[in-house]
């Protein structure tokens, strides 16, 4: 299992639907709004780097997500 952490910056008015969409994704283990430089923290457990990339891409496609910084397990 490969761990990853995605840090999202989002459009505030879209906050609730974005978090709901992210939490539904099977490989997302934990996601919550947060204080600080980012708006949402997402913890991901995936098979391999390819699937982490897929998930990161899917998250980026959610309407209202401005940017994603994905930190993948080394």
């Amino acid at each position: 299992m490969l761990n990853a952490c995605a840090l999202l910056k989002i459009v505030p008015t879209r906050a609730e639907p974005i978090l709901a969409a992210v939490i539904e994704m099977p490989s997302v283990k934990k996601a919550y709004f947060c204080y600080g430089r980012f708006d949402i923290v997402v913890f991901i457990e995936a098979e391999d780097y390819k699937s982490v990339r897929e998930i990161s891409k899917k998250i980026n496609l959610i309407e209202g997500v401005r940017s994603t910084e994905t930190l993948v397990e080394a």
Binding site: N3, E69, T70, V72, A74
Partner: peptide
């Protein structure tokens, strides 16, 4: 906790 690639070393 896990070491990571990117702008940080551990999350």
């Amino acid at each position: 906790s896990f070491p990571v690639f990117g702008r940080y070393d551990v999350v």
